[in-house]
Nucleic acid binder design. Structure first.
Length: 289
DNA sequence: CATTTCACCTGGTGGC
DNA sequence: TGCCACCAGGTGAAAT
């Protein structure tokens, strides 16, 4: 479901609600395996840790945790940007296509396909729901493994030269390259199509044949589209909602994604839909070269 | 190695 | 109404 802007929106919302709270009890569904770490080890790792903060890394949600047993008074949660202690452990949540991370009241009905419930000291619950089970949950003890890091570069902060270097001498289609998470992390099907439209570049163009100007247009278009989408709370294509259950509004700004056959908003040419890298791909054959 | 294809899942939609 | 084909915001393993 979620790409960078949706994950950013969710991470911010969850952070605002659970920062400083403590994990009292953990439950995992016996079914399913959206688990990178076996459920038993996750339960053991998570219990009695304090949530120092929640952030986004690529398309991953990272919940930073204290050492087990350290607790902060409910009246004064750890001060905002920098936790007083470095994280001792992390809970990594990847939402796949249909995953959701919700903060609920304890009495809220359990949605179908709920795979994890973390009961917090405040009595609220952090719930992971994922019908298709493409999502992944991982517990990392930072005494044993290093801090979670995305493989690819952050599209919001990468500079001109580094961005161009990613695509040099590559023969695959530029859209396939944008989707490759070991190059850039966070770009998915919607924002790949939308940024290519705004940069005026055809999705099938071999990445290595783009000019420096085109690559720079693409980098800026991508950055702008992602920033605007974050401002609007992401795109709600079907039933995506943030931690509050609120829909995003960037779908109203889509210029090509899921607009096959509709007139291009710039030149009225019907938007084309093709299959590329196994994904639906939308573009304007007139505006994009 | 780089690139492409496909399986992994459930649920919603639209055609017949 | 029922059945079926097709589609969906992602990714990683296998094949080429």
């Amino acid at each position: 479901m979620p790409e960078l802007p949706e994950v950013e929106t969710i991470a911010r919302g969850v952070d605002a609600r659970v920062r400083g709270d403590r994990i009292a009890e953990v439950w995992f569904s016996s079914k399913s395996e959206p688990f990178k770490t076996p459920p038993a080890r996750q339960v053991k790792g998570l219990e009695s840790r304090t949530i120092l903060g929640v952030e986004r890394v690529g398309k991953h949600i990272v919940v930073n945790l204290s050492s087990a047993g350290i607790r902060f008074s409910t009246k004064s949660p750890p001060p905002a940007p920098r936790p007083p202690h470095p994280a001792a452990a992390q809970w990594i949540v990847h939402l796949g296509m249909t995953g959701r991370l919700l903060v609920t009241a304890p009495e809220a009905p359990i949605a179908p396909h709920t795979h994890a419930r973390l009961t917090l000291t405040s009595r609220r619950e952090l719930r992971f729901v994922d019908p298709r089970r493409f999502g992944r949950l991982e517990f990392r003890d930072l005494a044993r493994s290093h801090t979670f890091a995305a493989a690819g570069a952050e599209p919001l902060s990468i500079g001109r030269e580094a961005f161009a270097a990613l695509f040099r001498r590559r023969r695959l289609a530029i859209k396939a390259a944008l989707l490759n998470q070991s190059l850039l992390s966070g770009v998915g099907n919607i924002y790949a199509d939308e940024s290519l439209f705004r940069a005026g570049i055809r999705p099938r163009r071999p990445a290595g044949r783009l000019t420096h100007d085109e690559l720079e247009r693409l980098r800026l278009a991508l950055r702008q589209v992602l920033q605007n989408a974050i401002r609007l709370g992401g795109s709600s294509v079907s039933d995506y909602v943030d931690a509050d259950g609120v829909r995003g509004f960037f779908q109203l700004e889509h210029r090509v994604y899921q607009r096959a056959g509709d007139p291009c908003l710039v030149c009225k040419t019907p938007i084309k839909r093709i299959l590329l890298a196994g994904r639906s791909t939308h573009f304007c054959p007139h505006c994009q070269r």
